[in-house]
């Protein structure tokens, strides 16, 4: 009797906690919300297929209007596990799950779920940074495509093993420095110009009262413009996606809301 009751309770708990899982199709970009244009979806698919072909890493993008009450992080993990994203030998899959904003559910969420094998290349903290720094700003403006591309630009080199979290952090620091560079150059130029000017006209150093004196032309060098990183996607082979490899997911990754 007691056992039966426990079983019923267990079932009730399982029903109460919705488990969202879309059907598996043999493609890497799954836009159930219809927020990507046909060309964008096809372009992403090509990019991910060629990435999968060249590295065996599988990245799946799923955009859905609803999670049916499920938590985005566990939904992404479950999807990766059940679909078998990544190769079973390496567990090198990544799920990028975005719950889009809809009139009914006015909140958006994004979750990255990493397979066991890529937890090293994409630690949770790294995933969180990618979401906070690169995806959420674009998602906040409703730019789903931009958010996915911004994530892939960092994720792909990391998964390929070319790029580590440490390098990403250094890059961020360098980017911050680059943003400050025009300012620094400006101040240095002003100081240099002033020094040169007063060296040439030492008599003007203390003339606060008397007017006169030709205005010295102060040349400020042109600022070095800061360039946005122009890393584009590399469209590769046109072959279709060969199918999921049975990778396993242990709950790694991070999530955020917008």
């Amino acid at each position: 009797m007691r056992r039966w009751l426990a079983l019923v309770l267990l079932l009730a708990a399982a029903v109460a906690r919705a488990e969202w899982l879309p059907p598996r199709l043999d493609r890497l970009v799954n836009d159930y919300s219809g927020v990507l244009s046909a060309e964008q979806a096809a372009g992403l698919e090509r990019r991910l297929v060629s990435f999968a072909d060249s590295t065996s890493n599988q990245v799946v993008v799923v955009i859905t209007p609803t999670l049916e009450g499920d938590d985005e992080q566990s939904a992404a993990q479950r999807l990766g596990e059940r679909w078998g994203v990544g190769q079973s030998r390496f567990d090198n899959g990544l799920v990028i799950l975005i719950k889009s904003k809809t009139p009914d559910e006015d909140w958006g969420a994004v979750a990255l779920a990493t397979g066991y094998g890529v937890e090293g290349a994409l630690p949770d903290v790294f995933c969180k940074r990618i979401i906070d720094d690169r995806m959420l700003p674009a998602l906040g403006e409703g730019d789903y495509y931009g958010a996915v591309v911004a994530a892939l630009d960092v994720v792909e080199p990391a998964m390929r093993g070319e790029y580590s979290f440490g390098q990403y952090r250094d890059d961020e620091r360098r980017a911050a420095l680059r943003a400050l560079l025009p300012l620094i150059v400006f101040f240095v130029a002003v100081i240099v110009a002033l020094v040169l000017y007063y060296k040439k006209h030492p008599d003007q150093w203390n003339n606060t009262g008397r007017g006169g004196g030709g205005g010295g032309g102060i040349y400020l060098g042109g600022f070095p413009g800061s360039f946005g990183d122009g890393r584009g996607s590399s469209g590769g082979s046109f072959g279709g996606f060969g199918g999921f490899g049975g990778g396993s997911f242990g709950g790694g990754g991070a999530s955020g809301r917008f």
Binding site: D124, V125, C127, K128, F249, G250, G252, A254
Partner: peptide
Amino acid sequence: FRDLQTQLEGTENRIAVE
């Protein structure tokens, strides 16, 4: 602190999965 929080959350996720 935020990194630590992320790591702890990730650990809880892993605990639930395992």
